[in-house]
Design a protein around this nucleic acid. Structure first.
Length: 280
DNA sequence: CCTGAAACCTGTCTGC
DNA sequence: TGCAGACAGGTTTCAG
């Protein structure tokens, strides 16, 4: 499921609570179950359990698509949800749900489950988040991330624009949905090479990236298929999963192509193909 | 340096 | 109905 807005939505709901769900702040971890070993990246299962039990949750944050649960100044529990991961909080009742991979029991009869159908997700318990997070690019919603920053970074590479935007070392947080949406709003073709964008185009792209991410967060993320629940950004897609439907801007039929092995949706009128532009 | 393919997984949907 | 194949919100690794 998760791109930046979905991870941010989960982080906020765990931190602040929401309807019928309490905050997990200040809760103590009373027990740990590892139901699928490969979900745990580090440390080994025994140490994982021993170091977690008794810890109290101090804060919940996010960096890119990583969800970060801070337990103490030198104990951080990180989750990456990859394609199908989710964190589900509920009362302890009955057996684990299908696809639960890691379960934390919290005081107050609460159960925090890392549920992940496709088993791509990972968890890390580390004293220092540096090695895991240090290669991530800037946070797109950080107030210090400017259009000038994006423009200069784009000029550093001669790469297809969409895969570059989804490269987490270039920019942290965009995935397939929000990249397609941002490129459509900016009227830029996904196959443009990054160093061909003008400053005006880079500025439009910067604005559209921040806009779609903020809208995604405002709408509590996108809920598609069997994964995730609650968000409604999926009702506001302009191009994603709308192949053959009318472009909301000009009415042209939305096209789907593959870019870097990922399904890519765009409007051939609003986002002209660079290879078809007449060269003088 | 850049691109594409494959791998890691399970579930759903489409088409024959 | 059954079954093969394509595809899905991500990332890593390898070949060319």
């Amino acid at each position: 499921m998760p791109e930046l807005p979905e991870v941010e939505t989960i982080a906020r709901s765990l931190r602040e609570g929401r309807l019928n769900e309490p905050s997990i702040l200040e809760r103590r971890i009373t027990d740990v179950y590892l139901l699928w070993e490969r979900t745990l990246a580090t440390p080994d299962p025994e140490e994982f359990k021993a170091r977690l039990i008794g810890q109290v949750i101090q804060d919940i944050g996010r960096r890119g698509k990583f969800l970060i649960i801070q337990l103490s100044p030198d104990q951080h529990l990180l989750f990456h949800l990859r394609m199908s991961g989710d964190l589900i909080l509920g009362q302890v009742e009955g057996p684990p749900a299908p696809h639960d991979r890691i379960i934390l029991l919290l005081d107050g009869n609460l159960r925090l489950s890392f549920n992940d159908t496709r088993k791509f997700g990972r968890a890390w318990l580390v004293s220092d988040t540096g090695p895991i997070l240090e290669n991530l690019g800037p946070e797109p919603l950080d107030p210090t991330f400017s259009a000038e920053d994006l423009f200069s970074r784009l000029q550093t590479f001669h790469r297809q624009l969409k895969p570059l935007l989804m490269d987490q070392t270039f920019l942290a947080g965009l995935g397939n949905i929000y990249t397609d949406e941002a490129l459509h709003i900016a009227s830029i073709h996904p196959l443009r090479h990054s160093d061909t964008l003008t400053f005006a185009e880079a500025t439009r792209l910067w604005q559209s990236i921040r806009h779609v991410l903020q809208e995604g967060i405002r709408l509590s993320g996108a809920s598609i298929d069997w994964v995730y629940r609650g968000g409604e950004f999926q009702n506001h897609f302009r191009v994603y999963k709308r192949t053959g439907e009318a472009c909301p801007t000009c009415g042209t039929s939305i096209q789907k192509i593959f870019v870097g092995q990922r399904g890519t949706h765009y409007c051939p009128n609003c986002q002209p193909n660079p290879q078809e532009r007449v060269q003088y």
